[in-house]
């Protein structure tokens, strides 16, 4: 232990230990979600009354399927980043906090993968 605070802690990563990483990832996914979420809600609301066939015919188009995959990826990524901050704020104790975070990350990854696979299945006509 020197007399000075290790400069890496001061300048590089800070208390969160991941520096700007979380902040930047949250903003990047937010920028993607501004148009994607509006597009999703408007399109699905417009098609909702027409039944499953119309919805499938729409999603089966490659560019629409691609946008859905992009939407799902950005959405679940952004959501788990947000929940992470809430967990870090309100779950006391290192063990409980880390365990909760691991659960949040795994569950959101699983839901995202399931959703993307469902889109792929619709897009490939399975």
């Amino acid at each position: 232990m020197g007399l000075r605070t290790p400069i890496a802690r001061v300048r590089g990563l800070g208390a969160s230990r991941d520096g700007m990483g979380h902040w930047w990832a949250q903003r990047l996914s937010a920028v993607a979600l501004v148009p994607l979420s509006l597009w999703f809600v408007a399109s699905v609301a417009a098609l909702a009354g027409d039944g499953r066939g119309a919805m499938i015919a729409w999603i089966a188009q490659p560019w629409v399927a691609g946008l859905h995959v992009m939407f799902i990826a950005a959405l679940f990524y952004h959501a788990q980043l947000g929940v992470q901050v809430v967990v870090e704020d309100y779950v006391p104790g290192d063990f409980a906090r880390v365990a909760t975070l691991i659960c949040v990350k795994f569950v959101s990854a699983l839901l995202a993968i399931i959703s993307i696979l469902a889109v792929v299945r619709v897009a490939t006509g399975g």
Partner: peptide
């Protein structure tokens, strides 16, 4: 901002199920 975000997180489970129901069809989507 935080509360609305968390409310939407609850909806994510349903969104995921909506995609699955759409892909599998049958009674689920109905």
């Amino acid at each position: 901002h935080r509360i609305t975000g968390l409310c939407m997180v609850i909806g994510l489970f349903l969104l995921s199920y909506w995609y699955v129901a759409l892909a599998l069809g049958g009674d689920r989507y109905a």
